[in-house]
Design a binder for these strands. Structure first.
Length: 956
DNA sequence: GTAACAG
DNA sequence: CTGTTACAACGCAAG
DNA sequence: CTTGCG
């Protein structure tokens, strides 16, 4: 690019026409740079474009770290260097030094200016967006020419007031020239007092267009050459189409299909499902040129009058016109969305009542989509782009908020949403268009409790106290009887529980008023024969456990009436699975269907190949396995070495028995990448770089920050752990979910989740013989020997008797080393945290020590345990881990911690149970512990059972 | 075994 | 590009 | 309060 020579214009005065003259405006810029050496863009001025004016703020680590604010005007970027950067606090004025104009392309520049060059150092795009002069509250986003004229005039006066629509800089800002307009270009940047004042501008990452930061650049990271900053102007969005002027086509909200389980998948975005009233917001300039907002319901009703404050704040947005999609939400005391509260406002019509309600039951509008913007239809623009544009142009206020989304990890999003008290999540394909009025498979809702809306077709009379009202409601939904034919009301079930007395009385009255001789149902099932029919007009919402194969409701409970729905809207939701698109990754549930589903297939693939690497198909996902012939356990006592392939074979065979014990327990991985002989390390956190089908949980770690823990909840993850040379599977005694004992209170899971980890779901007795064979090296632990084993078995049997006498069934397994583990599965109850459980175990242990002082010891000093079996109850503690049942052990011979029947205990020897032998044992004898998770016992009933005596359930 | 980082 | 490094951590017993 | 222990 040839450099232009000529008399430099005054900065910012670039007039626009005649290319040669225009580019003279960048002489100062070009004169300071050697474009052979720097990757900064050349001094070129493109032809004028349309749409709002843009701005950029670059964070620039030159000799001093500073920020460069650049405003687009006349084909160049007017620039200010701001040493301390913008402040959102209206009280703080930041010095801004006017510097030379930069080319427009500079706005997308990130990277490193080489040492020795002008401005050497790292540059990232810290913010970008669009701006308009806002003097007098008048915005010119829609009229570029006017925006330029006004900006130029204000610039000449030395006082610019700007409305910024950036990721960080939002609201109104001012640039004021100091020193009464002297030649010196000293300016101040300050924030006006508005809804965006005081909102934190900070963020962990510097760049708003990439994952770069000044620090990462300093550390050697470089911009991704292929990455272009996304467009800032609507016209540049792929798929944006100009709206015909005066087009005011009615829009209908896009709807989501229902799905039972959360899933994680690349290319999808996940947002909380808000329990409120769906509303489109149309913002357009009215007669006087000012912005007016109209809210419309799903059914097209005007809601603006019902929510005047929402409409008011929407109209104050810095927009020239838009259609937003969102949800009107009322919150309870805890800040959770509350439909019940919102209901108080839904049917208000009187202006006075509405004013009162606005104070008593404040609501917010959560925007999550953008259908139109400033003269363009965005329905064909991919969701991710629409969402980005939405967050750019909307300035959050007290009542107008943006729905936050996360990408990819839908299972984590679901967990988080549930913890925070949302009713579920909505998953949306990030590349999908907006499909007005359609129930699309590109949007999928996953609710905490399945709840759906049904048409009430009548009721069945009640008995006893309900004789005067009603027993149950007859529910139906519209379904088409045959493809192409019309639709009819199909019976789905009756709901009787969940109705309060007042609701019963009211419903009886309303249904009697709608009474009809004839049934509205297409077919009347036997259980609805006795119904009193009503015209199908009322709609209610019902939660239920699941749908039966024929679409019926299992365990339905009445939730609430839905006066906002019409019966005609109640159509059976398509229950199809989400179809996989070409660029998608498989989803998680496929990998985790049933415990160990696909284990046989996985084992067959391992048997069928002798290659060192294998892409193992597990369900719909692929686990990459390498170095399958690497020996992980060396040869031992005549047995062959155990290679990674053998470990994986074992894990696949044991998966159905193993996975239920690992489920929902944050694992500690014990890794031996070079086998037992090589070095080992523990790993508890795995922040990034794991396959997306590995389920994780984020828990507070040391220092308070949250760390990502791996859960082994599916076969694919188990195979992955094998690939990682995890030789031992260590898990805590607590687990994260209420299952399988479901003893935890329902309700907000926030506290419950933490509380759950605080409670073991089994008691653990660890029996370790300190009885030496005599062959051990000086000072080392005793090795496995017959005498020690016999003594350990003896103590275990005495322990079993003692527990039995207290009414507790117990289960025994080898530790995999020399000892035994005795598990007592318990129902988790609030009172029985680790401390109390440990105390209970301590009591049992002390009893055994006193009764059999020669055989049992509880001594802490290892030297004082010699000759006895050490009975350790100290493992019953939070954050302590034990080798899981069926976990291999990092000991010579590849032993496995093997569940046993009490009856076989005296006939077996731990050395017989290895990675090589266990699959055969499982095939021929099954899993002795298969019933353990169903054999949970209530510690709170311990005394009772003791009084009755005897073992309630057959242990082991 | 894997990824991030340093050289 | 290759080489190096990190990859856990808590509470109790006992002196 | 430190160290040993799992």
């Amino acid at each position: 690019m040839p450099r232009q020579r000529g008399a430099p214009d005054a900065p910012g005065d670039a007039p626009g026409p005649a290319a040669g003259a225009r580019e003279a405006a960048l002489d100062a810029y070009a004169g300071k740079r050697d474009f052979e050496r720097t990757s900064e863009p050349p001094a070129a001025i493109p032809d004028p474009s349309a749409g709002p004016l843009t701005f950029v703020v670059q964070r620039h680590a030159a000799s001093r770290l500073h920020y460069d604010l650049r405003l687009e005007l006349g084909g160049v970027m007017l620039s200010w260097a701001i040493p301390r950067g913008p402040s959102a606090d209206p009280g703080e004025r930041r010095l801004a030094a006017r510097v030379e104009d930069h080319p427009l392309d500079y706005a997308g520049f990130e990277g490193v200016i080489p040492a020795g060059e002008y401005g050497a150092g790292e540059v990232v795009v810290w913010d970008r967006g669009t701006y308009s002069p806002d003097e007098g509250g008048l915005l010119s986003f829609h009229d570029r020419g006017e925006a330029e004229r006004r900006t130029r005039a204000a610039l000449a006066e030395g006082k610019l007031s700007l409305r910024m629509r950036g990721h960080r800089m939002k609201g109104s800002w001012a640039l004021v020239r100091t020193g009464g307009g002297r030649a010196e270009e000293g300016w101040l940047l300050l924030k006006h007092r508005d809804e965006a004042a005081g909102v934190d501008l900070g963020s962990p990452l510097d760049s708003v267009i990439s994952d770069l930061s000044v620090d990462r650049l300093k550390a050697g990271h470089r911009p991704d050459a292929g990455l272009r900053p996304p467009p800032l102007r609507t016209a540049e969005l792929a798929g944006a189409r100009p709206l015909p002027s005066r087009d005011r086509g009615e829009r209908a909200p896009m709807l989501a299909t229902a799905r039972e389980h959360a899933f994680s998948r690349g290319g999808w975005l996940f947002e909380p499902k808000l329990d409120g009233v769906r509303a489109l917001a149309r913002l357009e300039r009215g007669e006087g040129g000012s912005l007016e907002a109209a809210l419309t319901s799903r059914r097209g009703h005007d809601l603006s009058a019902s929510y005047p404050l929402l409409a008011g704040e929407l109209a104050a947005q810095p927009l020239a016109g838009a259609v937003l999609d969102g949800e009107i939400v009322a919150t309870d005391e805890a800040g959770r969305p509350s439909f019940e509260r919102l209901q108080r406002r839904i049917n208000l019509a009187d202006a006075g009542e509405i004013r009162r309600a606005a104070v008593e039951t404040p609501v917010r509008y959560y925007a999550f989509d953008l259908l139109e913007l400033e003269g363009y239809d965005l329905a064909r623009v991919p969701l991710a782009e629409r969402a980005r544009m939405l967050s750019l142009v909307i300035s959050p206020t007290a009542r107008i908020r943006l729905v936050e989304r996360i990408a990819g990890d839908g299972v984590a999003a679901y967990r988080a949403a549930v913890d925070l008290g949302f009713e579920g999540i909505v998953a949306k394909r990030s590349d999908s268009p907006y499909e007005p009025g359609r129930r699309s498979a590109n949007w999928v809702k996953v609710k905490v409790r399945s709840s759906e809306e049904f048409v009430i077709c009548g009721y069945v009379e009640g008995k006893g106290s309900r004789a005067r009202t009603l027993g149950s409601l007859v529910l139906a939904e519209h379904r088409s009887s045959a493809p192409g034919s019309g639709r009819e009301l199909r019976y789905v079930g009756r709901v009787g529980s969940g109705l309060r007395e007042a609701q019963l009385v009211e419903l009886r009255e309303r249904l009697d008023a709608l009474a009809s001789e004839e049934s509205p149902l297409a077919e009347i099932p036997a259980e609805a024969r006795a119904a009193r029919w009503a015209r199908p007009e009322l709609v209610c919402e019902v939660t239920f456990a699941e749908r039966t194969g024929s679409g019926g409701l299992r365990a339905p409970v009445f939730l609430r009436m839905r006066p906002d729905r019409r019966a005609a809207e109640i159509v059976a939701a398509p229950r199809e699975a989400v179809r996989a698109g070409p660029a998608e990754r498989p989803d998680r549930p496929a990998a985790s269907r049933a415990p160990g589903a696909g284990a046989a297939e996985a084992a067959a693939q391992l048997e069928g190949s002798t290659r060192a690497s294998l892409r193992l198909a597990v369900g719909d996902v692929e686990v990459r396995l390498t170095n399958l012939d690497k020996p992980l356990w060396p040869p031992h006592e005549g047995r062959e070495a155990v290679a990674k392939r053998d470990l994986l074979r074992y894990l696949a065979a044991a998966a159905p028995s193993l996975l239920p014990h690992l489920r929902d327990r944050p694992l500690t991985l014990t890794r031996y990448p070079d086998g037992l002989q090589g070095g080992s390390f523990y790993q508890r956190h795995w922040e990034e770089g794991r396959p997306e089908w590995v389920e994780t949980v984020s828990l507070p770690g040391a220092g308070g920050e949250r760390r990502v823990h791996v859960l082994c909840n599916n076969l694919a993850t188990l195979m992955w752990l094998g690939q990682l040379a995890v030789l031992e599977l260590h898990a805590p005694l607590g687990r994260l979910s209420p299952a399988p004992d479901a003893a935890m209170p329902a309700g907000p899971r926030g506290e419950a989740l933490d509380a759950l980890l605080d409670r073991p779901d089994y008691l653990l007795f660890d029996l370790d013989p300190y009885i030496y064979s005599g062959r051990e090296p000086e000072g080392s632990e005793p090795e496995l020997n017959r005498r020690a084993w016999a003594a350990t078995v003896g103590v275990a049997l005495r322990l079993r008797e003692l527990l039995q006498a207290a009414g507790l069934a117990s289960f025994v397994k080898t530790s995999g080393a020399t000892g035994l583990h005795v598990h007592v599965p318990v129902v988790r109850e609030p009172a029985f945290d680790y401390a109390s459980v440990r105390a209970i175990c301590q009591t049992f242990a002390e009893f055994l020590e006193i009764a059999h002082p020669g055989e049992v010891t509880l001594r802490w000093r290892t030297t004082e345990r010699r000759g006895r079996v050490f009975l350790d109850v100290n493992q019953n503690a939070r954050a302590k881990n034990m080798a899981a049942p069926y976990s291999p052990r990092a000991k010579p011979g590849a032993p496995v911690s093997t569940p046993l029947l009490w009856e076989e205990l005296e006939r077996v020897y731990p050395g017989d149970f290895t990675v090589a032998t266990l699959p055969g044992r499982l095939r021929s004898s099954g899993d002795p512990w298969s019933g353990i998770l169903g054999a949970k016992q209530r510690l709170s009933e311990l005394g009772l059972q003791a009084a009755e005596g005897g073992e309630r359930r057959g242990g082991g």
